[in-house]
Lab assay of single mutants.
Amino acid sequence: EPLWIRPDAPSRCTWQLGRPASESPHHHTAPAKSPKILPDILKKIGDTPMVRINKIGKKFGLKCELLAKCEFFNAGGSVKDRISLRMIEDAERDGTLKPGDTIIEPTSGNTGIGLALAAAVRGYRCIIVMPEKMSSEKVDVLRALGAEIVRTPTNARFDSPESHVGVAWRLKNEIPNSHILDQYRNASNPLAHYDTTADEILQQCDGKLDMLVASVGTGGTITGIARKLKEKCPGCRIIGVDPEGSILAEPEELNQTEQTTYEVEGIGYDFIPTVLDRTVVDKWFKSNDEEAFTFARMLIAQEGLLCGGSAGSTVAVAVKAAQELQEGQRCVVILPDSVRNYMTKFLSDRWMLQKGFLKEEDLTEKKPWWWHLRVQELGLSAPLTVLPTITCGHTIEILREKGFDQAPVVDEAGVILGMVTLGNMLSSLLAGKVQPSDQVGKVIYKQFKQIRLTDTLGRLSHILEMDHFALVVHEQIQYHSTGKSSQRQMVFGVVTAIDLLNFVAAQERDQK
Rank of each mutant, 00 (worst) to 15 (best):
D455T: 15
D455G: 10
Y342P: 01
K367C: 15
G414Q: 15
D455K: 05
S381V: 08
D455M: 15
A407K: 01
Q450Y: 01
I463A: 01
L305V: 10
F357R: 01
P436V: 12
I451P: 12
L305K: 06
L457N: 05
I477P: 01
D499I: 01
C307T: 15
D499Y: 05
F295M: 11
I444E: 08
K367F: 13
G393V: 14
V386L: 11
R330D: 13
L358Y: 05
M490R: 12
L422A: 15
E397I: 01
H462V: 13
E303C: 01
F404P: 04
T364I: 14
A316K: 11
L325I: 06
G441C: 07
R452S: 08
H468A: 05
K320D: 01
L335E: 01
S313R: 04
I396H: 14
L335R: 01
V333R: 05
G432D: 15
G245P: 01
T257W: 13
K286G: 01
G418D: 06
Y479R: 15
K512G: 15
G414H: 05
F357L: 10
L387F: 12
P336R: 15
V409H: 01
A322W: 01
N341M: 04
Q489R: 01
I477N: 14
P368A: 07
A249V: 01
S481L: 15
S310G: 01
V375N: 13
E475W: 14
T261I: 06
I463T: 13
G493V: 10
L422K: 07
V410P: 03
E324W: 06
F271L: 04
V332C: 12
T391W: 01
H468K: 08
S348W: 06
Q259F: 14
T496V: 05
Q376T: 10
A301I: 11
E324L: 06
K449G: 06
G393R: 11
T260V: 10
K355P: 01
S437V: 13
L430A: 14
A497D: 15
K367L: 12
A311E: 01
V332Y: 01
V409Q: 07
T274R: 11
K359E: 14
Y262F: 11
R452E: 09
S287K: 11
E263T: 05
A470V: 12
S313Y: 01
M419Y: 14
D362C: 01
V434P: 11
P273T: 13
G414P: 01
V494P: 01
E377T: 01
R297C: 01
R459V: 06
I498V: 15
E361T: 13
R488L: 14
I239R: 01
I267N: 01
L373R: 07
V264A: 07
A292Q: 01
V420M: 14
P368H: 05
A506Y: 04
L384V: 11
T391E: 14
I238C: 08
V264K: 01
I272V: 10
E265F: 03
H474R: 04
V409R: 01
R297W: 01
M352C: 10
L254S: 05
E303M: 08
E360R: 10
F295T: 09
V280M: 09
F295Q: 14
G379L: 01
N288D: 15
S313M: 04
E365T: 14
D277N: 12
W284T: 01
E244K: 10
D349L: 11
A382Y: 03
Q435G: 15
I238Y: 04
F404L: 12
W370M: 06
E475V: 14
A296K: 01
A413L: 12
Q329D: 04
L399A: 14
L501P: 01
T274L: 07
Q435V: 11
E303I: 01
A431L: 15
T421C: 05
K283I: 06
M343P: 01
A316C: 04
L501K: 05
T257F: 09
T344M: 07
T279V: 09
T456E: 15
G483R: 13
C331I: 09
V386H: 07
A249F: 04
G423E: 12
E250M: 10
L325W: 01
L335I: 01
H474L: 08
H462Y: 12
D467N: 13
G328C: 15
G418Y: 07
E291R: 12
E290F: 06
G432Q: 01
A296R: 01
Q487Y: 09
T261P: 15
R400G: 08
Q302W: 15
E253P: 01
Q259P: 14
V409G: 08
L363D: 12
G418Q: 08
K359P: 01
